[in-house]
Amino acid sequence: MIIRPATPADVPRLIDILNQIIEIGGTTAYQDPLDAGYLDRFFTGNSKTFLHVAENVDGIQGMQWMDALDPPNDHIGGIATFADPTTTQRGVGTALFDITKAASLAAGYSELYAKIRADNTGGLAYYEKMGFRDHLVDRAVPLKDGTPVDRITKRLKLDPSH
Score class of each variant (00 low, 15 high):
residue 121 T to M: 10
residue 76 I to M: 08
residue 9 A to Y: 04
residue 90 R to K: 10
residue 108 G to S: 07
residue 137 V to M: 03
residue 139 R to A: 08
residue 47 S to Y: 10
residue 138 D to N: 10
residue 63 M to H: 08
residue 78 G to P: 06
residue 59 G to Y: 02
residue 55 E to C: 00
residue 132 F to K: 07
residue 56 N to W: 05
residue 102 A to M: 00
residue 49 T to C: 03
residue 64 Q to I: 12
residue 82 F to C: 03
residue 92 V to I: 15
residue 108 G to L: 05
residue 62 G to H: 03
residue 36 A to D: 09
residue 110 S to D: 11
residue 92 V to E: 06
residue 44 T to C: 01
residue 86 T to E: 12
residue 140 A to I: 03
residue 45 G to Y: 03
residue 22 I to Q: 03
residue 53 V to M: 07
residue 21 I to V: 15
residue 144 K to R: 14
residue 26 G to A: 07
residue 29 A to W: 13
residue 93 G to M: 09
residue 108 G to I: 01
residue 49 T to V: 15
residue 65 W to E: 11
residue 101 K to H: 07
residue 85 P to I: 04
residue 113 Y to H: 13
residue 96 L to M: 07
residue 137 V to K: 05
residue 64 Q to R: 08
residue 122 G to D: 02
residue 14 L to E: 01
residue 88 T to K: 14
residue 65 W to H: 12
residue 131 G to E: 06
residue 140 A to R: 14
residue 21 I to N: 06
residue 12 P to V: 07
residue 82 F to D: 06
residue 138 D to F: 14
residue 80 A to Q: 10
residue 138 D to H: 09
residue 23 E to Y: 13
residue 36 A to G: 06
residue 16 D to A: 14
residue 29 A to H: 13
residue 113 Y to F: 14
residue 98 D to V: 13
residue 100 T to C: 12
residue 58 D to V: 13
residue 52 H to F: 15
residue 71 P to R: 13
residue 29 A to D: 08
residue 50 F to C: 05
residue 139 R to Q: 11
residue 121 T to Q: 13
residue 11 V to I: 10
residue 23 E to S: 15
residue 69 L to S: 10
residue 127 Y to F: 15
residue 107 A to S: 09
residue 49 T to P: 02
residue 124 L to A: 09
residue 17 I to A: 07
residue 92 V to W: 09
residue 82 F to I: 05
residue 67 D to S: 08
residue 45 G to H: 03
residue 77 G to P: 00
residue 138 D to A: 15
residue 40 D to H: 00
residue 27 T to C: 11
residue 36 A to W: 02
residue 138 D to K: 13
residue 82 F to H: 10
residue 137 V to N: 02
residue 63 M to T: 08
residue 143 L to V: 05
residue 112 L to Q: 08
residue 13 R to V: 11
residue 50 F to S: 03
residue 81 T to L: 12
residue 66 M to I: 11
residue 114 A to H: 07
